[in-house]
Write a protein that binds this DNA or RNA. Structure first.
Lengths: 358, 358
DNA sequence: ATGAAAGCGCTAACAG
DNA sequence: CTGTTAGCGCTTTCAT
């Protein structure tokens, strides 16, 4: 038993008294193998710990795997821009292993475009798919098609349990809401007033995604030793003026002392209103390291950000799919990312570090 | 110009009218090549864009690179246990690329043992070294030897600028102290009293490492709109009773309302004292996700932890050295890790997620 | 159904 | 000095 000895297919062949070809067929379930040979090989496989050599594997094969990516267009929204910022380096990283990543972009506020791109995607018949399923019915339809075609797929960012993806990569949104509540309570527990979740309505699907966060937020406040009053503000305004008017009205009505803004882009609009109206004492907890939010955090207009690391989500999704394709390694059903708390004092350590791949 | 065509050494050989052997010699500057052949090959190389195939490269070579690791023994201390917890998977990950990681462990509180292990390490003549240089003079001596022997080395955990390593992996300790101060101020700004840095002296080298943290901590408190008084408590006690007595004395003397504990293992001893003496109102900020600290955070006896991710530090160090050896890719001179804030509400998201590699 | 053998791109040992 | 060739471990084709 030489522990350091690396086991090759050749070794397995010798041990089980068949040829390398047969071992290969058993391992990959390709071609025909007699029950007898199969049993012999499997017996050996069970006894030893065989790990195929990835290098030899991809070198010896000329198959190129295609992973298709379906996500919102990166020019429309800073959050998605951030999410896709690691695409280039991820592509480069996997290229040597014969894995290609083909992006398909849909328009963020256009469910129809989502559907169309998903069709274009299927047309290139990929070996696997990673997508951000932000349109519920369309994503379900798409997932069903993938199931039928037997194409493995991973979801990131948005959890749709019914779609039953190979894996989900993202955060626990309920807990994220709890965290936000705990932070907001920390900075304004000594003032009177209520804490509000601010929903800025842009399109319907958002409400689903953000409900979990709000639930966590409210539950946390309710369960406090001295319960904290919470409210929910829903604003559907197309101009900044209308938005301002609605927000001010709500702030007055509920005596708001802290705002929880579950969208990454909402904090800027909100901070602007507070600034213009000298409402410095109202604290904000927002989401994600998009430039606007970083600036607001530095200037002191936002108290905390919670980082969802959307770029890492994509990176990990590709990682899991690649391993699935290359080794049939099943990924964990759910990979929940840490809920990263960002403040003025640690923001630099997040923006300077380029610890992406890895 | 077929863009998709991947250029092989064979192609270069054909284009320059020499053999693959000669091309290989030119590319790697090994063996003897006539000026004429060299010129021919270099001309072709300049015209085309040749990227060697890593897979073929490592597969075709039987050179195994040895990366030696020098770190404290993992059985002595939970922090180092955590730091080295990823060693096994890291070794496994790099094995296929012909990279071996050979650990050498020294005794944490024994500079002599550090020296001895560093000598043993050199005796195995490694191709690169990654070490935690926690003993200043010994680490400098060691670094000088490595420089002379032309062995690339990376430092993690502790920064020693004079040693001039290929790279440093760790955190900005000054900023880390500032962060701790901001957190502690958040939870006890409404009480009277001072905030104290608690140094539990175990051996001399610690003072160097932790001074930066304390400076950041104090500077932050001084610069507040209403400056916060700070003190420094130094305890050198061999029994928990002596420790308790000293700590209580200091707490009374300085009217301590919050404690900053820059070592990962100090929080437990301290929390115990506070618990026994019903000093619930004194808040603690500590370091690292070792089990004791996790428990104390959950039970509410610690307010915040700052995570140094020592396991990732090692992982990244190996990553950089491997790339350096395989591709001559120079790593960044410094890789500073994010200062991760851990609270009761996000601890689960850190302990559940097994997002280590990568 | 199975074994033998020819690659994949690169390295390194071996003749000249 | 230079060309040739035998691997590295796995895939895939081709006989048998």
């Amino acid at each position: 038993m030489d522990k350091n000895k690396i086991i090759r297919i050749k070794d397995i062949a010798k041990l089980s008294g068949v040829s390398v070809g047969t071992v290969d067929r058993v391992i990959h379930e390709r071609g025909k193998v007699s029950e007898v040979s199969k049993a012999k090989v499997e017996k050996v496989l069970k006894e030893i710990n065989y790990t195929p050599n990835l290098l030899a594997k991809t070198l010896g094969s000329n198959k190129v795997f295609k992973i298709a990516l379906l996500a919102p267009h990166l020019d429309e929204d800073p959050y998605w821009n951030l999410a896709l910022s690691a695409l280039g380096s991820t592509q480069k990283e996997w290229q040597p292993y014969h894995i290609e990543i083909l992006p398909f972009y849909f328009e963020l506020h256009n469910a129809d475009s989502y559907h169309k791109e998903s069709e274009r995607l299927l047309a290139c018949n990929p070996d696997a798919v990673i997508s951000a399923p932000i349109y519920l019915p369309e994503a379900l339809t798409f997932s069903k098609k993938l199931k039928v075609m037997n194409i493995p797929f991973i979801h990131f960012n948005t959890l749709i349990t019914e779609a039953d993806p190979l894996a989900f990569i993202g955060q626990d949104l309920y807990q994220s809401g709890r965290l936000a509540a705990s932070l907001l309570n920390l900075v304004c527990h000594d003032q009177k007033g209520s804490l509000a979740t601010l929903h800025i309505v842009q399109s319907i699907q958002h409400s689903i995604h953000f409900q979990d966060k709000e639930n966590g937020f409210n539950d946390y406040c309710k369960a406090l030793a001295s319960p904290q009053k919470t409210t929910s503000i829903l604003i559907n305004a197309h101009t900044q003026e209308l938005f301002e008017a609605s927000l001010l009205k709500a702030i007055n009505e509920f005596e708001v002392k802290g705002l929880f803004i579950p969208t990454s882009s909402g904090a800027k609009k909100t901070a602007e209103v507070l600034r213009n109206n000298h409402l410095k004492d109202i604290k904000i907890v927002g989401y994600d390291l998009i430039q606007d939010n970083i600036d607001l955090l530095r200037s002191g207009e936002i108290e905390f950000l919670i980082n969802q690391s959307p770029n890492k989500q994509l990176y990990r999704g590709v990682y899991h799919l690649a391993h699935h394709l290359l080794f049939k390694n099943p990924p964990p059903k759910k990979e929940l990312f840490p809920l990263e708390i960002i403040t003025r004092e640690n923001i630099d350590s997040y923006t300077c570090a380029q610890i992406l791949n890895q």
